[in-house]
Amino acid sequence: MREIFRTILLNREAEKKMLAVLIDPEKCQGPLLAATIAALKVEAPDFIFVGGSLTSTSTKSLIELFKEETESKIILFPGNASQFTPNADALLFMSLISGRNPDYLIGQQVQSAISVKNSGMEVIPMGYILIEGDAKSSVEYISNTQPIPREKKGIVLSTALAGELLGMHIIYLEAGSGAKSPVSPELIQYVSENISIPLIVGGGITTPADMISSFEAGADIVVIGNFFEKYPYKIPDFIEYRDKYYEEKRKKEEE
């Protein structure tokens, strides 16, 4: 029942970096949905995260479609309790630990807890930390919380450590959808070197160089969403860059 998280831990131990494509059900429809599925059939990322800050679209039917059409593991990444559906491969059961809005710290989780428990699906507890990204994000607006200024490294690390000590299995550093600036490599490195659980980084990543910089700084999983909504056909390119990075790193270690 812990297949997804076990895979993450094994890849982390092998220093094999992972890429997740974030799908927002509200946006991924019509031509964009068709183009995204076509790209995912060319090269499959490690994971497909499905969820959004606000959605009235059926998350369940979208997950069923991706399961039929792609080979990637589907992880539910819900913005609130109403987006829960048991047909994903795993659920990121997250708490917005950088904010002080009790509804996103524990309220939404309480609403869905019984349904999640009864579903029997794999659940991965995750501490979600919103970092300033030079643009007001959907998460910031919907959750009514303030991001942590990116220069406040001590606060970010203390928040991440608090999540780990509270029993979270993963920490997610998020610059927010549409961020003009991704989480800096310096901040990623500072956090990754001082926590002992896997680290996810997302928001504002628009080039393979951004992705590789995040990997080199210590991110175990990089998540890209907004950019692929504009350029879904570039998904295979990023996966190839990720694979090339891993192979070059492995060869250097063998020399």
Score class of each variant (00 low, 15 high):
Asp237Thr: 11
Gly127His: 09
Ala135Gly: 00
Thr55Asn: 07
Asn226Phe: 00
Ser196Lys: 12
Asp46Cys: 04
Lys17Asp: 02
Pro236Phe: 07
Ile37Ala: 09
Asn11Met: 07
Phe93Arg: 07
Tyr141His: 04
Ser192Ala: 15
Ala20Trp: 10
Lys234His: 14
Tyr233Glu: 15
Ser196Val: 04
Thr206Gln: 09
Asn87Glu: 13
Thr207Asn: 11
Glu229Ala: 07
Asp89Trp: 01
Ile205Cys: 12
Leu62Ala: 07
Gly167Val: 12
Glu151Ser: 14
Ile239Tyr: 08
Tyr172Cys: 01
Met121Cys: 05
Pro125Ile: 15
Gly51Ile: 05
Arg242Trp: 07
Ile131Pro: 01
Gln189Phe: 01
Lys73Thr: 03
Pro182Asn: 00
Met94Asp: 04
Gln189Tyr: 02
Lys41Ile: 02
Thr85Met: 13
Ala44Gln: 09
Ile37Gln: 13
Ala179Lys: 04
Glu15Leu: 14
Asp220Val: 08
Pro86Arg: 07
Ile131Tyr: 02
Met211Ser: 04
Lys73Ser: 10
Gln146Thr: 09
Ala209Ile: 11
Asn87Leu: 06
Glu122Tyr: 03
Leu33Ala: 08
Glu254Gln: 14
Gly79Leu: 08
Glu13Ala: 14
Lys136Gly: 07
Pro149Val: 11
Leu199Tyr: 09
Leu187Met: 13
Thr36Arg: 10
Asp210His: 15
Pro236Lys: 09
Lys60Ser: 11
Ile148Ala: 00
Ile235Phe: 12
Val183Cys: 11
Val222Met: 05
Ser196Gln: 04
Arg2Asp: 13
Glu193Ser: 13
Asn194Ser: 14
Leu40Cys: 04
Ser58Arg: 10
Glu26Ser: 14
Leu9Cys: 05
Val139Asn: 01
Ile235Lys: 12
Glu68Met: 07
Gly178Phe: 08
Ser72Thr: 01
Ala38Val: 09
Phe49Tyr: 12
Val223Gln: 03
Gly133Pro: 13
Glu68Leu: 10
Leu19Ser: 03
Gly52Ser: 13
Gly154Pro: 00
Asp103Ala: 08
Tyr141Lys: 08
Tyr241Arg: 05
Lys230Asn: 01
Ser112Phe: 03
Ile235Glu: 12
Tyr141Trp: 02
Thr207His: 04
Val222Lys: 07
Glu174Trp: 07
Ile97Glu: 08
Thr7Phe: 15
Ile170Arg: 03
Lys244Trp: 08
Ile155Lys: 14
Lys180Ile: 10
Ile124Asn: 05
Ser213Tyr: 10
Ile97Arg: 03
Ile155Arg: 14
Thr70Gly: 12
Tyr104His: 09
Val201Thr: 01
Tyr141Thr: 06
Leu199Asn: 10
Ile142Arg: 02
Gly163Met: 09
Val42Leu: 14
Leu105Val: 15
Gly203Ser: 04
Leu199Phe: 11
Ala113Trp: 14
Val110Cys: 06
Val223Phe: 03
Glu68Tyr: 05
